[in-house]
Amino acid sequence: ETEYTFDDKREADRAAKEAQNNGLRVHVTKDGNRWKVRID
């Protein structure tokens, strides 16, 4: 399990989409004014 934090939602969405394309499970959550992408 890996977690990334992004300031920009577009960057978070791009990272999530890339991980999904690689067959990974992805969870995107909002943390204040930042975005967390957790990859299982």
Rank of each mutant, 00 (worst) to 15 (best):
T2K: 12
Q20L: 13
T29N: 04
D40M: 13
R34Q: 13
N33E: 12
A12R: 01
Y4R: 08
K9D: 03
D13V: 11
G23Y: 03
N33M: 06
Q20I: 14
Y4T: 05
A16K: 04
E11L: 09
V26Q: 01
D31H: 09
V37G: 01
A15N: 03
W35A: 00
D31Y: 06
T5R: 05
K30T: 07
D7L: 11
K30Q: 13
L24H: 12
R38F: 13
K30S: 07
E3W: 14
A15Y: 15
N22L: 13
N21Y: 08
I39H: 03
E18V: 11
V26D: 00
V26L: 02
K17N: 09
R38M: 12
G32D: 05
D31S: 07
R34W: 07
E18Q: 10
A19T: 01
A19M: 14
T2M: 13
R34Y: 10
K36L: 13
D40P: 05
E1F: 15
R25S: 09
R38D: 04
E1Q: 14
T2F: 13
R14E: 11
Q20V: 12
L24S: 06
T2L: 13
D31F: 08
G23V: 02
D40F: 15
K9V: 08
D8P: 01
R10P: 06
R25F: 07
T5Q: 06
A15I: 13
K17G: 06
A19H: 08
D13E: 12
R14C: 09
A19K: 03
K17T: 10
L24F: 15
K36M: 08
A16Q: 04
D7H: 10
G23T: 01
D7Q: 08
Q20W: 11
K9W: 15
N21V: 09
D31V: 13
N21L: 13
K36I: 15
D7V: 09
Y4L: 13
K36A: 06
R10M: 12
E1T: 14
D7I: 09
R25L: 08
D8Y: 07
R34A: 08
D7R: 08
K9R: 10
Q20C: 09
D8R: 07
I39E: 02
G32Y: 01
E18K: 10
E3H: 07
K30D: 03
Y4E: 04
A15Q: 05
D31I: 11
I39C: 10
D13M: 15
E1P: 14
N21S: 12
T29R: 08
N33S: 08
A12T: 02
V37Y: 00
E3T: 12
E3G: 04
E18A: 12
R25G: 05
E3I: 14
A12D: 01
E18R: 11
E1I: 15
D13S: 05
E11V: 05
E18M: 10
N21H: 09
N22P: 01
T29L: 11
R34M: 09
H27P: 00
R14Y: 08
G23L: 03
N22M: 14
K9E: 11
D7N: 10
A16G: 03
R10C: 10
K36N: 06
Y4H: 06
T2I: 14
A15P: 01
K17P: 00
R14F: 09
K9H: 07
G32E: 04
R10S: 13
T2P: 06
L24Y: 14
R34D: 05
K9G: 04
V28W: 02
D40H: 12
K17F: 11
A12F: 02
E11I: 05
D13H: 09
V37R: 00
V37M: 04
T5L: 14
T5Y: 15
D13G: 03
R10W: 13
E18G: 05
A16W: 04
K30R: 11
R34H: 10
F6V: 03
R38P: 01
F6A: 01
N21A: 14
E3M: 09
A15C: 12
N21F: 08
T5D: 05
F6T: 02
K30M: 09
D40A: 11
R38C: 07
V28Y: 03
R38K: 12
G23H: 04
R25M: 09
W35G: 00
N22G: 06
E18F: 09
Y4V: 07
N33V: 05
T2C: 15
A15G: 01
D8E: 07
G23S: 03
V26I: 04
Y4F: 11
A16T: 05
Q20K: 10
K9I: 08
I39N: 02
A12E: 00
D7S: 10
V26T: 05
D13N: 06
T5W: 15
A19Q: 04
T5V: 14
K17E: 11
G23I: 02
R14H: 08
A16V: 10
A19F: 15
N22Q: 13
H27M: 11
N22V: 08
G32S: 02
T5A: 06
K36Y: 09
T29P: 00
L24V: 04
D40W: 15
D40E: 15
R10A: 14
L24D: 03
Y4C: 12
E18L: 12
H27W: 13
R14T: 07
A16E: 04
D13Y: 15
V37L: 08
K17H: 10
K9P: 09
E18H: 11
R10V: 12
V26H: 02
D40G: 12
I39Q: 03
E11W: 06
K36D: 02
R34I: 11
A19L: 15
Y4I: 09
K36P: 02
G23Q: 03
R34N: 07
V26K: 01
N33Y: 05
E3L: 11
E18C: 11
A12I: 01
